[in-house]
Write a protein that binds this DNA or RNA. Structure first.
Length: 293
DNA sequence: TACTAACCTGTACG
DNA sequence: ACGTACAGGTTAG
């Protein structure tokens, strides 16, 4: 038993070592990670994940770390598969250590509902308050943490309670979304099993979830690697680098156009289009941020 | 169906 | 100082 565990954790180190944590954590996928002294700590639903450097180690409350970092994906094959042009190839070369994460579905669902028309810092603040105010307090590695609250926890809170987390008009979305999980209108295990289109349709029926938020939830927590969230940044990227390959007409992205564009994108990038999105997004964000430094 | 304005909140500019 | 704009969008008209 002991030996088996040793073997498992040893074999994970090369995989973990190939990851650039800083890049991955700061890629807009996750919002509840912080560095304390020499380790990174992240909240993932009812789990806490720790990554320490020197020596490189990974640890979590409920041993979900292999799933979280998608060690089950054949990353080199995926890189080859999505390298359809120079742009993606260079982005992968530049951010080789960036990884797509497999998040806790409920936390991911709430996180991206909260993200709408907001900014990264504000999103982080809101989610942190949601944890501190409603999540279970846990001691881990001599630090105090708050887990992400469950759907039941949030569904019982008043709008007023939620407003105190800085959610603004999103407070009602968050409450309703939580109730929908409790009453079974949203069933993550079902959504994982069905295909992209079926799962997306279900999510879009919910109040406060539009095309972009639905795609983030699908890509980051529901096994839909063909999801490709189209936000303002991705539209900029498509116009800038893919004008000929994936043309887009018109000023606004209507639901119908969003669908058509997604279809073209999957035709072009293939079944791992979501991975490509992550690298392109990172590339453009990084270019943009440089201007402000 | 396509297009627009309004929307909570915090912060970065002018 | 104080007003305005904007942020990985969504909804209502």
């Amino acid at each position: 038993m002991h030996q088996k565990q040793m073997k498992l954790s040893q074999s994970k180190i090369p995989l973990l070592d190939s990851i650039n944590l800083n890049e991955t954590i700061n890629s807009g996928q996750v919002f509840l990670w912080e560095k304390k002294e020499k380790s990174w700590y992240g909240i993932n639903g009812q789990d806490i994940i720790e990554i320490s450097e020197n020596p490189l180690k990974i640890k979590s409350l409920s041993h979900s770390e292999d799933r979280f970092f998608r060690f089950d994906d054949s990353i080199e094959e995926i890189f080859t598969n999505i390298s359809r042009d120079k742009i993606v190839k260079n982005a992968i070369k530049r951010f080789r250590g960036l990884r797509l994460l497999r998040q806790d579905p409920f936390q991911c669902y709430i996180s991206f509902i909260v993200s709408s028309n907001s900014n990264i810092q504000n999103i982080k603040n809101c989610l942190k308050k949601i944890c501190v105010n409603f999540g279970e307090k846990i001691e881990f590695q001599n630090y105090e943490f708050h887990l992400f609250p469950t759907a039941e926890d949030i569904s019982k809170k008043s709008i007023q309670d939620l407003l105190e987390c800085g959610l603004g008009y999103r407070a009602k979305y968050v409450k309703k979304a939580s109730q929908d999980v409790v009453n079974g209108k949203i069933d993550f295990e079902y959504l994982k099993k069905v295909d992209y289109h079926t799962a997306k349709t279900k999510l879009l029926e919910r109040f406060g979830i539009g095309n972009k938020v639905a795609d983030c939830i699908l890509l980051f927590s529901l096994e839909k690697l063909d999801s490709f969230p189209l936000d303002t940044w991705m539209m900029k990227i498509l116009k800038k680098y893919y004008y000929e390959k994936i043309p887009f007409e018109g000023k606004t992205l209507t639901p119908k156009k969003y669908d058509e564009l997604h279809e073209e994108i999957v035709k072009y990038f293939g079944p791992y289009a979501g991975y490509a999105q992550q690298f392109l997004f990172k590339m453009e964000r990084e270019n943009y941020q440089k201007k402000w430094l």
